[in-house]
Design a protein around this nucleic acid. Structure first.
Length: 128
DNA sequence: GTTCTCACA
DNA sequence: TGTGAGGA
């Protein structure tokens, strides 16, 4: 298995815990930009899933779609994409991350910290 | 069987 | 946000 994961809506729903309606809605709001398959089917990647996870968390923290958009518009991270691959022959050491939990986010704590930091300025609870 | 769009509640 | 209709 190479590192090329095509994630469908079903997978996305399982991985993010969101409903298809939510995911499509976020797509409409330009929060994410998944590719389209032959039948106009959304094709998500691991990157999109991570984005969805951020969206979910941000929304849960009481932010609105617009707020989430601002944070996802400029995806600049310091040390999140620094994946050192010393496995020249084992290219599937990272491909299949089995989910022993509902949220297989390896960098969840880092995510929460970042989000909490950016969330300190405004805090209002209106959205669900 | 699954997802897609559009529309309505 | 959820659900339904109708189609791919």
């Amino acid at each position: 298995m190479k590192i090329g994961k095509n994630i469908t809506m079903k997978e996305a729903k399982e991985k993010t815990g969101l409903s298809s309606r939510q995911i499509r809605y976020y797509d409409q709001q330009s929060l994410i930009f998944p590719a389209r398959s032959k039948g106009n089917q959304r094709l998500f990647s691991e990157n999109d899933i991570k984005r969805l996870l951020k969206i979910k968390i941000l929304l849960a923290e009481g932010n609105s779609i617009e707020t989430v958009k601002s944070k996802l518009k400029v995806p600049e991270f310091e040390e999140e994409t620094t994946i050192e691959l010393d496995y020249d022959d084992q290219d599937d050491y990272y491909s299949d991350v089995e989910l022993d939990s509902l949220f297989p986010v390896s960098n969840r704590s880092e995510l929460i910290k970042k989000l909490s930091r950016s969330n300190k300025k405004g805090f209002k609870e209106e959205e669900e």
